[in-house]
Amino acid sequence: MTNDEIRALILRELRRIAPEIDADTIDPSVELREQADLDSMDILNWMIAIHEKTGVEIPEADYARMATLNDCVSYLSQRLK
């Protein structure tokens, strides 16, 4: 997967959980949790969706490494190698 594909996948799954999110206004360097008003349940559902689509097993301890959109893309692209 290219980084653009990963980014599209992340946003698509995020919109499934929070349909009102505007992908255009998301700042890729600011914490998604804050920007999208996600709680721990949203985060978990989102991680599960990403896991289902990519097969990447994300340990709880790594959630912190996926705080922003940019973080997510780089974390997943590393894990997908």
Binding site: S40, M41, L44, M47, I48, H51, E52, E57, I58, E60
Partner: peptide
């Protein structure tokens, strides 16, 4: 909870709620 979650795949992890 933390130790239980360590043993579980992501889809089965629980929140403290």
């Amino acid at each position: 909870l933390q130790s239980e979650n360590l043993k579980l795949p992501i889809a089965n992890r629980a929140l403290y709620s």
